[in-house]
Design a binder for these strands. Structure first.
Length: 585
RNA sequence: GCGCUCGUAGCUCAGCUGGAUAGAGUGUCGCCCUCCGAAGGCGAAGGUCGUGGGUUCGACUCCCGCCGAGCGCGCCA
């Protein structure tokens, strides 16, 4: 309907231009919006006010001229001027009713489109270091990324969901060493556990399963382990130097093969746990991309060569630097360290290049604490001749957890955090998925555990699910009464739906496709979330003021057709959010 | 100090990319079940949109200053 009205306006303006009433040269951006106030009609355009300046005329006068030139349309009942120069359109309610038939006919596909025309895009999200279980902070990125992926798919993108696994680097070495030290403890050794090691209970679990599977294969004497290791922080030393020395010692005492076994056992165990967690959370991936594979197959080396060839690399203090400042970054960045090892940045450059080369545009979903990282990656892509616009970073603020009114501090290292698994156990996947995308992603979010766990009506998810279940309940009752539902009959009697509750509900159903499109294009699941809330509100209100199962058979079928269409849209929307639409509660 | 993000009802947050009288939920206070599920509905109260300027027909929205919050500023990832 919007595009139809825009086209009508376009025609009117064109003929006014031909008559010399409006200047020939105009850059038109015809905006049609839904009115907020029903007394302003169904749709409104501000085009007359936008034309006021170039035409050097009073907006109301322009609006009058446009209306006079407007081609007639059977579904446009009335057009008038209001306020400073708005053009308000009143639409034939019967034309709005047609949406009900569309919804029932298209079913789960209603609202989807192909406006992206199959464009390939990769959404990379969560990608937490496999050094521990996912916590509630990761949960928001998971829910957001999965939902954004669903939304993009719904408007015709070919979406590739990917988890970038940081299975290389120092953090992983710290993990492996932490496991090994716990393993030594399980062998009866007395260990002073490093302050910078991973202290979670899951480390000991991995260590004891290693002990069970391999016996004493990795055993060592405590003296050999700690001999000549610089002091830890509590002992007045440097915790970083302490842990680095322990890593070297672990590699030395275990030898390459055994160290690798400890390392891979830890990695496999934790990553397996993460995968399971995400699956249970309804978050699915097309690929789990290994950082180490980039090293093994030479992709990092190739990327570095490409950067060097671009002329934006230089050597200083024994390291290779990338001149990211040339592209607006705050400072230049090290790509190859003076010890010859590549940085995480180098891996990331190779990873992004690799993705672009496979034909995907990139959507990275990162915690907002990584925002400073964006310019350098874009700079690298640009230096290598790629279009940085093909990479988009969506930042997600961490949710701050509250319990008993107290803010909960979280740290993976110390092992003190609420895991995603615990959260799901307490409030269920549906509530967690819904809660996480209730707010705009870059907005700080307070996640009140007491509220979410209260299972009460304070939880907005129940409200939406309840609307869906209520329709199902009505249909069950219909059957119990020995009555039947005849869709065709209902669709033939839509003109009986004239109550204000009914026209309002139909109007909201009409908005679903554009709402979905908008939510997808702006990467804003919360818009869909709010829409579903609004749709539910109108349904509940309708439910309370009118009975659906009435004596007038035609009216009853018309109403049943309307509430079934509502149920379909609720189900479609909840589905995109990764939430169940229950038949009963 | 510099950079990014953000300040909207008591609380948690929307505000359709510059439009008409700034909206929801929650909380508080009134009502509504002989009735398809009251996990519901109807109504009331609640605001200097952090603050001071600017841009224009028109600003919560765009620009600048200030105040306040979070994050970032490693040859860590």
């Amino acid at each position: 309907m919007k595009t139809r009205l825009a086209s009508l306006l376009q025609q009117a303006i064109t003929s006014l231009q031909a008559q010399g009433e409006l200047p020939e040269e105009l850059t038109l951006d015809i905006q049609i919006e839904h009115t907020r106030d029903p007394s302003h009609g169904d749709y409104a355009s501000n085009i007359a006010m936008m034309l006021a300046k170039p035409a050097k005329k009073n907006p109301r006068q322009i609006a009058q001229s446009i209306i006079e030139q407007l081609p007639s349309d059977n579904d446009v009942l009335e057009v008038n001027i209001a306020g400073p120069g708005f053009i308000n359109f009143f639409i034939n309610p019967l034309s709005q009713h047609a949406v009900i038939g569309h919804i029932l006919q298209q079913g789960i596909r209603f609202g989807t489109s192909n406006i992206a025309n199959g464009k390939k895009v990769q959404v990379e999200f969560v990608s937490a270091n496999p050094t521990g279980p996912l916590h509630v902070g990761h949960g928001r990125g998971a829910a957001y990324g999965a939902t954004v992926s669903n939304l993009l798919t719904a408007i015709g993108y070919q979406v590739h969901r990917e988890y970038y696994v940081n299975d290389a680097g120092r953090q992983m070495d710290i993990l492996a060493t932490s496991v090994w030290l716990r393993y030594l403890e399980s062998c009866g050794k007395t260990i002073e556990f490093p302050s910078n090691g991973y202290k979670g209970a899951y480390i000991s679990d991995i260590a004891s399963s290693l002990k069970k599977a391999r016996g004493d294969a990795f055993n060592a004497k405590a003296n050999d382990v700690f001999n000549n290791i610089p002091a830890d922080e509590p002992a007045g030393g440097d915790k970083e130097k302490h842990i680095d020395a322990l890593i070297s010692r672990a590699k030395e005492l275990l030898g390459h093969d055994h160290y690798r076994i400890v390392f891979d056992t830890a990695l496999t165990s934790i990553l397996g746990d993460i995968r399971l967690d995400l699956e249970d959370f309804g978050v699915h991936y097309d690929d789990w991309f290994s950082e180490r594979s980039l090293m093994d197959n030479g992709a990092i080396e190739r990327a570095i060569e490409k950067l060097k060839a671009s002329g934006y690399m230089y050597q200083k203090d024994g390291a290779w630097w990338f001149k990211s400042t040339e592209f607006g970054d705050e400072k230049d960045r090290v790509v190859v360290r003076d010890n010859g090892l590549t940085t995480y940045f180098a891996s990331d450059i190779a990873y992004h290049l690799h993705t672009l080369e496979r034909g995907y545009d990139i959507i990275d979903i990162w915690g907002s604490d990584h925002h400073g990282y964006v310019p350098r990656v874009k700079a690298a892509l640009q230096a290598m001749g790629a279009d940085p616009e093909r990479m988009k970073v969506l930042l997600v603020q961490f949710a701050v957890l509250y319990k008993g009114g107290e803010k909960m501090q979280m740290s993976t290292r110390s092992g003190q955090f609420v895991t995603l698994r615990e959260l799901r156990k307490e409030i269920g996947s549906d509530a967690a998925r819904y809660f996480y995308v209730m707010r705009k992603a870059e907005q700080h979010m307070d996640f009140d555990l007491d509220l979410a766990t209260s299972q009460s009506n304070e939880n907005p998810l129940f409200y939406v699910q309840y609307a869906h279940a209520r329709v199902c309940s009505v249909m069950r009752l219909l059957t119990e009464k020995g009555l039947s539902y005849t869709e065709a009959d209902g669709l033939n009697n839509l003109d009986k739906l004239t109550q204000s509750h009914e026209t309002a509900l139909i109007d909201t159903l009409n908005r679903y496709p554009e709402k979905l499109t908008q939510a997808a294009q702006n990467f804003e699941p919360h818009q869909l979330n709010h829409y579903l809330r609004e749709l539910s509100t109108q349904f509940h209100s309708y439910y309370n003021s009118h009975k659906f199962i009435v004596d007038d058979a035609h009216l009853m079928q018309a109403r049943l057709v309307l509430i079934n269409a509502t149920k379909q849209v609720l189900s479609n929307g909840l589905g995109l959010l990764g939430v169940n639409a229950p038949e009963s509660m």
